[in-house]
Design a protein around this nucleic acid. Sequence first.
DNA 1: GCCAACGTTGGC
DNA 2: GCCAACGTTGGC
Length: 152
Amino acid sequence: MKYWLMKSEPDVFSIDQLKSKKKSGWDGVRNYQARNFMRDEMKLGDIVLFYHSSCEIPGVAGLAKVSRESHPDPSQFDPKSEYYDPKSTLDNPRWFMVEVEFVEKFEDVITLKMLKEKKELENMPVVQKGSRLSINPVSEKEYKTILQMRLG
DNA sequence: GCCAACGTTGGC
DNA sequence: GCCAACGTTGGC
């Protein structure tokens, strides 16, 4: 069992939307490193910290879990989608995604500011300047630290 | 809206 | 294969 942090802009897809849909394919990722995590490493039952980025209060908004492992992201085949990739074919898809299932919405967002104040979390890419990768592995220790912050 | 960081593209 | 130009991310 592994832990992950996945960024999403709440204007595009928020924890509330996941809560009402219950499950959702994590589509639209067009970065090879992030794709490789989804394609190769994210397994059924892995826990996801759902992070809201590019918004008023960036931070961890809740929890999800992997409910289906790697499969091709359908948006790459859809010419009407903003994620359409003309170089992708059904026989040779370029982009893969996992499906995630809602677990919990935190009562209050654990803000980036709070994450930055924790010495234990200083190695997380999300607290570091210029880190843009939208999917990152999280250590068990980091995960537990963040979970404890949710209640206080 | 600004801008630093960084990934991708494409000419050579 | 190099690297400048360009585009995107994301905090502020």
